[in-house]
Amino acid sequence: MTVLPKDIPGDSLKVTVGTANGKPGDTVTVPVTFADVAKMKNVGTCNFYLGYDASLLEVVSVDAGPIVKNAAVNFSSSASNGTISFLFLDNTITDELITADGVFANIKFKLKSVTAKTTTPVTFKDGGAFGDGTMSKIASVTKTNGSVTIDP
């Protein structure tokens, strides 16, 4: 049996954390987006972790974005102690894959008090994996961190 590389060099799934701005007490939304989904033969499963400074940001909610089908079954998240974990699994293993680019999740943060303008990162942590529509590992994932700026 011969195994051929399935990824064209330079191609990767792009996962990007967005940015937001606000004043202390505001609730802002930071999107997590996927790009080049079709090039990577869709997404059938993924789990990953984001870190944030809990002294500056309070997670209000984490909701599935419009590219997630049947989110009540296929999407899960949790947030505590400065870490947000995400889990997606197409429970049907074929019919509810992520097949389009767009917003995977929206994180709502309540901004805490600061004395001066502060930009705090929302960054990928170690761990996690992504699988394509056949549940094979997506070897190349380009992750881009985001941030939230609090301006009193």
Rank of each mutant, 00 (worst) to 15 (best):
F75N: 01
L97Y: 00
D132C: 04
F109I: 02
L57S: 10
P66L: 12
T123Q: 06
V3Q: 14
G18K: 12
I138V: 08
T115C: 03
A116H: 06
T115N: 03
I138N: 02
S61T: 09
V59I: 14
N106R: 05
K112Q: 06
L87M: 03
L56S: 12
Y52C: 10
N91F: 15
A71K: 12
K112F: 01
S55I: 13
T142W: 15
F75T: 02
L57Q: 13
S80N: 14
P9Y: 08
I93V: 05
N21M: 10
V3I: 11
K117E: 05
V3N: 11
V68M: 10
N145L: 05
I8N: 11
N42Y: 13
N106S: 04
F104A: 04
M1K: 14
D95C: 02
V62C: 08
N47H: 02
A64N: 11
L57F: 08
V32T: 08
F130D: 00
T120V: 07
T149S: 15
K14P: 11
F86T: 00
F88A: 01
S85P: 03
S80W: 15
A72H: 14
P24R: 10
G25H: 14
T115I: 14
D26V: 11
A72Y: 13
T134M: 05
C46A: 01
I8T: 12
G18I: 12
N145I: 04
K125S: 02
G146I: 04
T99C: 05
G22L: 07
A139R: 15
A129N: 00
F75P: 01
A72T: 14
G127T: 02
V28Q: 08
V114I: 08
S12Y: 14
L89Y: 00
I84L: 14
D101G: 07
T144R: 07
I8S: 11
T92Y: 00
K6T: 10
G133N: 04
I8R: 09
K112M: 05
T92I: 00
T120I: 11
N47S: 02
G51M: 12
D90M: 03
P121A: 06
K137R: 04
G65T: 10
S147N: 05
F75G: 02
A71R: 10
I150K: 08
N70S: 12
T99I: 08
S113C: 05
N47D: 03
T134S: 07
D26N: 11
S61H: 12
T142A: 08
S12F: 09
A129S: 03
N74C: 03
F75H: 10
F104I: 03
V122L: 04
K108D: 00
V59Q: 11
T94C: 03
N47Q: 01
F48T: 07
Y52P: 03
V68D: 10
N81L: 15
T142I: 07
T142N: 07
Y49L: 00
D26S: 12
T144Y: 07
N42Q: 12
I107V: 07
L87I: 06
K69F: 11
S147R: 06
L57H: 08
L89K: 01
I8Y: 10
K39P: 10
S12G: 12
T134N: 04
A35M: 09
N70V: 10
S136E: 00
P5Y: 11
L57P: 02
G25I: 13
D132V: 03
A105E: 07
T83N: 15
G18Y: 12
P152T: 15
V103M: 03
G131L: 01
P121H: 08
G10D: 07
V28M: 09
G51K: 13
S113A: 07
T16F: 13
T45K: 02
T92N: 02
P121W: 03
K39A: 12
V37S: 12
V141P: 02
T94R: 02
D7G: 11
V60N: 13
T19A: 13
A71H: 11
V32D: 02
T115V: 07
A54L: 09
K14D: 15
F48I: 04
S147D: 06
A105N: 02
G127S: 03
S76T: 02
I84Q: 05
P9H: 12
N42L: 08
D151A: 15
G127I: 00
T33S: 10
G102D: 06
K117Q: 05
G128R: 03
D90Y: 06
I98F: 04
D63K: 10
T83H: 14
P5L: 07
A116E: 07
V37I: 12
T149M: 15
G102K: 01
K137V: 00
Y49H: 03
